[in-house]
């Protein structure tokens, strides 16, 4: 009889343990699948990382507010009287691809990538005097679907992950003097991770000042 009671107690404890475990999994989910949505504060912090890349010369030199691109880390006006032209691809006698081929030409120091072109004026990240716009203003431009070719958060993330001319910023080739061009302040993986956090937080923008 005593043995039966012990067995019954063990069985009850086992059933209780199984129930408790299932309850925990149902309530919180398995630890390895646990995801926590970033807060708005997380998103704003991540946006500042994204912004630090967007205003780096490799990116912002082709996001001008003017009729010309810029070049170099000092972001001076592109030489040779280069003009923005229709679609940001230059003018007939001097299109971007007159010099910029599908890949970097390290032997001549000319950077290149597929369909080299300027960002549209709707995606300008500078003022008419070539000064970078504020974090808040760039964020608003990037998230305005009437200006950004109708990209939502997921599309922006994909753009930052995969677009050829975005990727070029981390493989910008050699200058004519043979030295390497500088890259943005974050590694591409960090840039994508920051973009993902910002997107998952709902693409929050800093308040305008």
């Amino acid at each position: 009889m005593l043995v039966n009671r012990k067995l019954l107690l063990k069985a009850l404890l086992f059933i209780l343990a199984v129930f408790a475990t299932r309850l925990a999994v149902t309530t919180h989910g398995p630890v390895e699948n646990e995801t926590i949505k970033p807060t708005v504060a997380d998103g704003l912090a991540a946006w500042q990382d994204v912004y630090s890349v967007l205003i780096s010369p490799r990116c912002i030199n082709c996001h001008t507010a003017t009729s010309y691109p810029q070049q170099g880390d000092d972001r001076h006006r592109h030489f040779a009287n280069v003009i923005r032209g229709r679609g940001g691809r230059g003018v007939p006698g001097l299109v971007c691809m007159s010099c910029h081929q599908d890949a970097n030409a390290d032997s001549t120091g000319v950077p290149g990538g597929p369909a080299w072109h300027l960002a549209p004026l709707s995606m300008k990240w500078q003022d008419p005097n070539d000064r970078p716009l504020s974090s808040a203003d760039v964020c608003r431009a990037v998230t305005d679907r009437s200006k950004n070719e109708n990209m939502d958060g997921r599309a922006l993330l994909k753009h930052h992950e995969e677009a050829a001319l975005v990727l070029w910023a981390w493989n910008p080739g050699r200058r004519p003097d043979g030295t390497m061009r500088t890259t943005p302040p974050l590694a591409h993986a960090q840039f994508v991770a920051a973009t993902r956090t910002w997107v998952e937080a709902g693409t929050p923008c800093p308040p305008a000042k």
């Binding site: 030489f79 040779a80 006698g93 691809m97 007159s98 010099c99 081929q101 001549t108 120091g109 290149g112």
Partner: peptide, 26 residues
Amino acid sequence: GISACGACTVHLDGVATRSCVVPVSM
């Protein structure tokens, strides 16, 4: 020799191209 003057311009697939900065491999 740095694509600044245009004297070397040829047409590459119909595009006016500065031949002084385009490696033949491209």
